[in-house]
């Protein structure tokens, strides 16, 4: 008997295991609750299982947290560089888009107007807080002369005060020395626009004339310094004093002078036939 068992120990062992497995399977199929054998097995195996689980997790965490992170710093830096580069590109793209829209609008305006114009970029401003001046990158070499008008599609900007071969000084209409003959577009009431450093005032308006808030004010062309019909701004307040001969109106400039980056200078002198309408050298 012993010899028989010894001889067939492997098949018998396998058979025994098979029977146990069948028994377990049979017992577990009876109901949803864990049977006693299962409980015993789970209870016995729990410390080993949890120990192995902890060990594997620790190794796995160490592997992922340290070994796999070799080179991550460089990768992180590379990604940061890429993000910065993409942000810069996005910013550049937005800037190009804004600039394109602005310049396109100005270019269409320049083509619509019959006067010959020189496009100039603003490259500086007055060095003090009192004068409202701008330095532009066009001068006598580009056809500019003193007293030429500076405009944008939104309206009047100022006049050329002094010219050098390659750059010129523009006096803005808000400069305290600036005077622009003007009239209201609605009912042609005349006045004189004074620069007040912080804004504009239309003075010497006939006290009987009817001017009101919102009226558009344009250049009258008197004096020949500025072409007629260029928008200067809108009336925002009218001041009438009973003892004064004239009324005064505060004007909001049509052009945002603090934010402009380029201007058109109207070449008002005689120029050769067939010369381009729009000059940008």
């Amino acid at each position: 008997m012993y010899q028989f068992l010894f001889r067939f120990r492997y098949p018998l062992a396998l058979l025994f295991i098979l029977l146990v497995l069948l028994l377990v399977l049979f017992q577990s199929g009876r109901g949803n609750e864990s049977n006693r054998l299962q409980k015993i097995i789970q209870t016995v195996s729990y410390p080993f299982q949890s120990g192995i689980h902890y060990f594997v997790n620790t190794i796995d965490g160490w592997w992922d947290g340290y070994v796999m992170l070799i080179g991550t710093r460089q990768e992180n830096q590379q990604l940061r560089n890429e993000v910065a580069e993409l942000k810069e590109r996005l910013n550049q793209s937005l800037e190009n888009s804004v600039q394109y829209k602005r310049l396109r609008g100005q270019l269409l305006f320049a083509k619509r107007q019959p006067d010959r114009k020189v496009f100039a970029e603003i490259i500086g401003e007055s060095v003090d807080n009192i004068h409202q001046m701008r330095l532009v990158n066009r001068g006598s070499r580009h056809g500019l002369k003193r007293n030429f008008s500076a405009i944008l599609k939104e309206g009047l900007v100022g006049r050329v005060q002094s010219v050098t071969p390659f750059q010129s000084n523009l006096q803005l209409i808000t400069d305290f020395r600036s005077r622009v003959p003007a009239l209201t577009q609605r009912n042609r009431v005349r006045g004189l626009i004074y620069g007040t450093q912080t804004g504009l005032e239309m003075r010497q308006i006939n006290r009987r004339a009817e001017v009101k808030k919102g009226d558009r004010v344009i250049t009258s062309g008197l004096g020949g310094l500025f072409p007629k019909g260029i928008l200067i701004g809108n009336i925002v307040e009218v001041k009438r004093q009973p003892h004064e001969l004239f009324q005064t109106a505060s004007i909001e400039t049509a052009v945002d002078l603090s934010r402009m980056e380029e201007v058109f200078i109207i070449i008002s002198g005689p120029y050769p036939q067939g010369s381009p309408l729009f000059t940008d050298q």
Binding site: S126, V127, H131, S162
Partner: peptide
């Protein structure tokens, strides 16, 4: 120099 760069009235500054 500042006169020339701010208002063109030579002499103020």
């Amino acid at each position: 120099w500042c006169d020339l760069m701010s208002h063109g009235m030579i002499g103020v500054y």
